[in-house]
């Protein structure tokens, strides 16, 4: 337990000292939200209708941005070798690293999403729905992304390949995330149905992704 805690603290400490990946993710999120109205026009009715979807796509891309760094630093400086030889099983190391990565990149998006939702004329229940669905769904994105990050960790052009590998697998999360977010602001489907499936996706990812990522990391050289 103390080893897991030490790992979690170290990840947060590195993130806070080196560059502030979380803040960059939020800025990127804001830029994406700003760009969309330029493309589809400033019609608030339209924006309010597709607002939850825009927020979700922006969050998905912002999460993807930092994923290639998840294991890369530890691979390059040899830490990954030692993490494999430590007291924690590699699967647990991966869960802890994902948790820390999510706390730095995913959680800030959940917090600012309602604020940015106002810019897209999403209101009241809709804002809460977006925040809740992001809270439930972004962990799945981090975990699925961890598989891709582990598969591409030792490759030179890993970043683009990571996106190509991971994005198709995020389709279910996107579908149910946007469904839940839209359902919250009215619609034919009750909010709970897609939301619970979204939670299930995150839990399933938590159960399976660490094993796949660990297998990938073990065979990286």
């Amino acid at each position: 337990m103390s080893a897991a805690l030490a790992l979690f603290k170290r990840e947060l400490r590195i993130a806070s000292r080196a560059g502030g990946g979380g803040a960059m993710g939020v800025v990127f999120f804001l830029i994406l939200i700003t760009i969309v109205p330029f493309a589809i026009g400033p019609d608030l009715n339209l924006l309010s209708r597709i607002g939850p979807a825009i927020l979700w796509i922006a969050a998905l891309l912002a999460m993807l941005l930092g994923l290639d760094r998840l294991f890369l630093g530890d691979h390059e400086d040899g830490s990954l070798d030692l993490l494999q030889m430590g007291a924690l099983p590699l699967e647990v190391v991966i869960v802890v690293k994902c948790l820390a990565h999510w706390a730095v990149t995913g959680l800030p998006l959940v917090i600012v999403a309602p604020l940015f939702g106002l810019m897209l004329a999403v209101e009241g229940d809709g804002l809460a729905g977006v925040a809740a669905s992001l809270l439930a769904g972004t962990p799945a994105l981090t975990l699925i992304g961890a598989i891709g990050a582990a598969l591409t960790v030792s490759l030179r052009r890993g970043g683009l390949l990571l996106a190509i590998l991971v994005l198709p697998f995020t389709v279910p999360v996107l579908i149910f995330g946007v469904s839940a977010a839209s359902a919250a602001s009215g619609g034919t489907v009750p909010f709970a149905t897609p939301f619970l499936i979204l939670c299930a996706l995150s839990l399933a990812a938590l159960a399976l992704a660490p094993f796949a990522a660990a297998a990938a990391l073990r065979s990286r050289d």
Partner: peptide
């Protein structure tokens, strides 16, 4: 590993797309 991850995911993707 990627192929096996796909095997688990393809039914989930199919189900989501149907929904």
């Amino acid at each position: 590993i990627f192929t096996l991850v796909g095997v688990v995911n393809i039914p989930i993707i199919k189900f989501s797309v149907d929904w």
